[in-house]
Amino acid sequence: MSNMLRWQGKNTGFELIHPGLQLTYFAVVLVLTMTAMQPVLLTISFISALLFSFCVRGWQTTLKTLVILLPLVIICAVINPLFAMMGSSEVVRFGQHAIYLESIIFGLCMGMMLASVILWFSCASKILSTDKVLAVLGGVLPVVGLMISMAMRLVPQFTERGKLIGSVAESVTSARPLTKRDHITSRLRIVSVLMGWSLEESLQSADAMKARGWGATNKRTGYKRYRFAAFDLFASLALALLVITCSVLAFVACSQFHFYPTMSTLTLWWGYIPYALLMLLPLVVRIVEDLRFKWLGQA
């Protein structure tokens, strides 16, 4: 059971849409986070990523990640002013070297960006299981999809076998290697058994593929587990609209903002709202889904 759950991924609200769209969402969020170098936008992205990570990866795992990420942010904040001696408000001065507040803030923003990207990536890997990525790939390139699928089976099988051969040889203690030479050959033996076994099996697998019509047509099709429904079209349009709005707003926000020599003052602005909506979207969907099931349960 645990295996199956791992394969299908947890209930995140993302299952409602096509994997292609899921992939697009994460790609967009990552690109925006990496390009929009503006404190408010970065904070929005970081908080959203953090909240979503609590939601899909659990608070324990997320806290463990934070333990690594926070020092990273601090290191960035410390290192940047040492290399970029720019800004106007001097904090301390070591002889020739001045440390400016602006460059500390720039470093903090850099660190936050890195942290957000890492958090978004770990959330994405939780939701975009390999079979989803393959489904997207397999739809476009069936043969590449198949090759990856075969490799995904063979590589773990290979390592697993290597371990098995070694453990069997070690378990036969009545014939355990005695001399140093025996010990060295036992390593070689594992490789030789593994190669022979795998080659033999690959021949049989090739037969099994031929017996099932491999190469019968030039136009191989790919079985699509996910279909692109009308809802997905609607969702893509809505997402596209949101993304365009956010990109324009982010561009405006970034071009009006500068760190050096003096940092621009940040003001309350309506333009942050669509950006926050985009970043918090998965969380909102998740909460709505949870509430829906709660109401259903009570009804």
Binding site: L146, S149, M150, M152, R153, S205, G213, A216
Partner: peptide, 15 residues
């Protein structure tokens, strides 16, 4: 041949 059961079932038909 394939890594997932559903893909294995579909393999021949895909061919």
């Amino acid at each position: 041949v394939c890594d997932a059961v559903w893909h294995e079932l579909a393999f021949g038909l895909e061919n």
